[in-house]
Design a protein around this nucleic acid. Sequence first.
DNA 1: CTGTATCCATCGTGATACTG
DNA 2: CAGTATCACGATGGATACAG
Lengths: 133, 133
Amino acid sequence: MSQRNTGVTAQVVNAYACPVREVLDRVAGKWSVQILVAAAHGPIRFTELERGIEGISRRMLTLTLRNLERDGLVTRTVHPTVPPKVEYALTPMAQELHETLQRLTDWAERNRVHIAEARAAYDVEHRPEQLGA
Amino acid sequence: MSQRNTGVTAQVVNAYACPVREVLDRVAGKWSVQILVAAAHGPIRFTELERGIEGISRRMLTLTLRNLERDGLVTRTVHPTVPPKVEYALTPMAQELHETLQRLTDWAERNRVHIAEARAAYDVEHRPEQLGA
DNA sequence: CTGTATCCATCGTGATACTG
DNA sequence: CAGTATCACGATGGATACAG
């Protein structure tokens, strides 16, 4: 793209073997999904997002919003008032995506415990040989 | 975890606001999904994966497989033959995940063009002011 | 065939400070 | 209020070489 890298994946250069990765590259960022979720019920302001998403920095909020906007997933509406008011909303495309992500959430919740157990078992199995104690 | 960081996300420390991120942290790695897809039809060998997934390095293949195994998403079966033969297969849990990811694929394919257009439009709109010439 | 170890370039993200 | 600029650091992943 035109300006220099400001952090956060800028663009996709190579063709994809499978299109899932294409979605993931848009959504796998640390904050993208949470923004999508936060904006799912309706337009939301910058500061509301900042307060609603635990631990996000202003920088990352801006950056992630810009990427989502660039991909046509959110719209940015500036109300020329004093003080300024900017609202972000999901596009129809993003709302579909949000529903699909809900399936992933369901899967995660169904398998959360199972995964945790698998990890624990694996870590016990593969710990650095101080078994005998 | 026990051994030192070898690259690729090691573990999850903090609690999650939403469980989607939990899935994504497991699947957002550059190669995880492609391995899941490649192993979806049935058990597959290390070298088959290596050849089937364009551009993956042996290192990343191993690393990603280990993580998937740790999360209980793939099983690793060693056939004690000469030469050695190792097969990786999806667990039932991973097969469910694979189906869910398929929905994401569908979304991606439906909206691929639309996203590309959004990007193009955005990039034109926000290029670094050398418009006149 | 199926890995592991090491080195290193790059990317993503947080901290902090400044602005219209 | 809603950003942007700069810096710094660890995580991520590629290249390469070695091994059971």
